Amino acid sequence: MNWIDLLPPLLVGAKVTAWITLASTAGGGVLAFAAGLGASSRFRGWRWLAGFYIQVFRGTSLLVQLFWLYFALPILIGLSLSPIVAGIVGLSLNIGAYGAEVVRGSLASVDSGQREAATALNLSSRQTLWRVLMPQALVEMMPPFGNLVIQNLKDSALVSLISLADLAFQAGQLRNRTLETLPILVLTLLLYFAMALVLMVTMRLLERYAWRASGRGVTH
């Protein structure tokens, strides 16, 4: 079978993969900042809640989380999620838990003198966070966030196991129909690499922008 003829169904799957990767990365980013700030909070309740979320979703398999969302929730509470919703929610919760530790660690890495200076200027806790700590912490967050985004793309292949017709699912279906293996796997690999390359370039540009915005300039 001609390799070109194999490409259209794989491109359909690649669009699904790109969509769930972008949507779950956005959702995970929101969760990462919410949980990361919660883990850094002075309030014990928020710290406990954030810590519980982080430990559960970092300490369990993403595949098991997807199975729980897609197969177990209808049994437990009667809530049925479509494959794409379950996939996006599962990936968001997973990357958000890892991203929360990036946020917490980056905020903790800001020099204590910055906090003392903010206190001396009589800034409130909120002003200190958003005007002093966060701009500096963002620079430190960008490289690990870039790694998490690429990892999220690769992890998205697991959604094929809950019958979501992403790139991995389409590749498997195409192999079963055509009995072709090598060309399908090569094309699948190239499509994943192309998407990863776009994400890597985008994250590198965002990283450089964060460095310039922080006044530190670009060092690499």
Rank of each mutant, 00 (worst) to 15 (best):
E180F: 08
L121T: 10
L31W: 01
N176S: 15
E101L: 11
Y53M: 10
L129H: 03
V110T: 03
S80P: 10
V201Y: 13
V186C: 09
A34G: 04
E116I: 10
W46P: 02
F193K: 06
A108Y: 07
A120F: 03
L197M: 14
N147Y: 02
V12D: 14
A137Q: 03
E140N: 13
T21V: 12
A210F: 06
P8Y: 09
L7C: 03
L187R: 08
S41E: 04
L37P: 00
L174N: 04
H220S: 15
L6G: 00
V201C: 09
G59E: 04
A210Q: 06
A18G: 10
R126D: 07
V132M: 08
G13R: 04
A213W: 11
V198Q: 10
L79A: 15
V102L: 05
M1W: 08
P143F: 06
L174V: 09
A120I: 08
T188N: 03
T21G: 01
Y98G: 02
M141P: 00
G146P: 01
S40R: 13
A118H: 05
G78C: 12
R104T: 06
A171V: 10
L182M: 15
G215V: 05
D166Y: 05
L179I: 07
A118R: 05
D166Q: 06
I54M: 02
Q170V: 10
A50D: 03
G90D: 00
A194M: 11
G99H: 02
G38A: 04
F57N: 00
L76W: 15
A100H: 03
D155N: 15
A165Y: 09
A26G: 05
S80F: 12
I4W: 14
R216F: 05
L138V: 14
L31I: 13
A108R: 11
G78K: 12
R212L: 15
N2T: 07
A26R: 05
V139Y: 08
Q127G: 14
G217W: 10
L187D: 00
L187S: 02
S24P: 01
T178P: 08
I4C: 08
G36A: 07
L206S: 02
Y192G: 00
I88L: 01
M203C: 13
L37H: 01
A97N: 04
V198Y: 08
R175T: 07
A194I: 12
R204F: 12
G105L: 05
L205Q: 12
L69G: 00
L11H: 08
T17Y: 03
S160R: 06
R212C: 12
T17S: 12
V64W: 13
V102W: 00
L133T: 00
S82M: 10
A118W: 03
G96D: 01
L133A: 08
I20C: 05
I84W: 14
V64S: 10
L129I: 06
W19L: 15
V12H: 13
S92Q: 09
Q170R: 14
A72V: 15
